[in-house]
Amino acid sequence: MKLSMLRNVVIVGIGTALLAACDHNDNNRNMPEPEPEPVMLTYEVTIENISAAQPLSPVAVLLHSDQTLWQVGESASEALEVLAEGGDNSDMLAVDGTLATESGSAPVGPGSNESYQLTVSDEQSAYLSVVTMLVNTNDAFTGITNKALSDLAVNDSMTMMLPVYDAGTEANSEAAGTIPGPADGGEGFNAERDDADTVSYHPGVVSSQDTLPDSVLMAEHRFDNPVARLIITRVE
């Protein structure tokens, strides 16, 4: 018997049992209906780094109530600034309104991928945010925020190609000492905001091999959109 047929049989069986239960309770119409047991929903989130030479900092994955964690045209939150300048996801994972969170254990290198599983109950409307820094930059990050998952049935999946954002909190100087990734080993988060102070799409890095002689970045650190692929699957 095929698995799908087996499932149908099981579902029919449950239906019959429920009908039988209803018959049995005919004399107890005034009894309150028992609260339905919450169903647990599990999502698997996979991120693939498709850049040339931009490791992605330990990924922050959050299921949360309806809220955007950043918006093009708005000022970055301090939690986002901390992540986008230094790759530290701890403040982002601690934002209010989360239902479940996962943190990447290590950076996801170019050509690599990592998967995370998060579970919530169906009584909660879950929205997904994923965010990670391109570590060989001043303050570039990628991700998605406030993606509604309610339409996803079991085994459904969706794939998204992610653009690169500029947090707008640190000038894209590419100068020695300002980039935390292996291309420089410089400073991460700095509370000073010396750029547009507005989240935008990223203009791209220039590199010393292009027209920025003082850049610590090389041709391979340049990137284009998209920079990562995200696959979201409801597994339960």
Partner: peptide, 21 residues
């Protein structure tokens, strides 16, 4: 393309700001 020189160079465009993807 732009360049990093606001007073001369090949271009009057600022290479770190006025590019796009």
């Amino acid at each position: 393309i732009g360049d990093a020189d606001m007073m001369s160079g090949q271009s009057d465009i600022q290479n770190t700001v006025q590019r796009w993807l």
